[in-house]
């Protein structure tokens, strides 16, 4: 027979260890800490910025919660009189406008007749847009039509977006009228 030669101290140690083991087992201690309980409140310490939904002409207010240089959550702005915190399914997805991997992050250019897109920088893009707008406008400008001064171009059209605010639409309309654009339209004509 194997004799268990335990003295009192060893016995106490052993029973202590047993109790501790049991306690740990009973408490459901899980080694799979992958699902760590570090989950703090999602929008705690986030910066909140109010914005206007860019999708339709209603203009719902949205609160954008940002943290660690990314958008962690978006929700209807309860203080906005238009939507009082409510949103539709499309407005609710606003966060993906920033976080989606499908989002374009660089200007892309497709030359006339080409089948592929090229990455260009913003300076080239804006310069090219300005140059071609001026070329088109100058070559198509009509001063007088049927004896009436019209100062217009019919080769350019402008399509505004629902996300534009009052000031932006004012500036846009002023620029387009200055160029002589008569086809001034808006996307949100519902």
């Amino acid at each position: 027979m194997v004799e268990m030669n335990l003295n009192r101290r060893q016995f106490l140690k052993l029973s202590g260890a047993t109790a501790a083991t049991l306690a740990v087992v009973e408490l459901g201690f899980n080694e799979k800490k992958a699902y760590a309980k570090s989950k703090e409140f999602k929008i705690a310490k986030a910066t909140v910025t109010p914005t206007i939904c860019c999708y339709c002409g209603v203009g719902c207010g949205i609160l954008v919660h940002t943290k660690n240089n990314t958008v962690v959550y978006t929700e209807g702005d309860p203080d906005n009189p238009i939507n009082e915190g409510k949103l539709c399914s499309k407005g609710t997805t606003l966060r993906q406008l920033y976080t989606s991997e499908k989002r374009l992050t660089k200007p892309l250019y497709r030359a006339p007749g080409s089948s592929k897109w090229e990455v260009k920088d913003w300076d080239w893009m804006l310069d090219t847009i300005a140059k071609r707008t001026k070329d088109t406008r100058d070559s198509s400008f009509v001063d007088v039509e049927n004896g009436i001064t019209v100062n217009k171009t019919e080769r350019i059209a402008s399509l505004g977006g629902a996300a534009l605010d009052n000031e932006e639409t004012y500036l846009l309309a002023k620029l387009m009228r200055g160029l002589g654009v008569t086809y001034l339209e808006h996307q949100a004509r519902i």
């Binding site: 999602k42 409510k86 539709c88 399914s89 609710t92």
Partner: peptide, 15 residues
């Protein structure tokens, strides 16, 4: 039937 509740759930719970 706008389904905003479905999207809001995914948005909050990061699903």
């Amino acid at each position: 039937g706008c389904r905003a509740c479905m999207v809001a759930c995914k948005n909050w719970n990061d699903l």
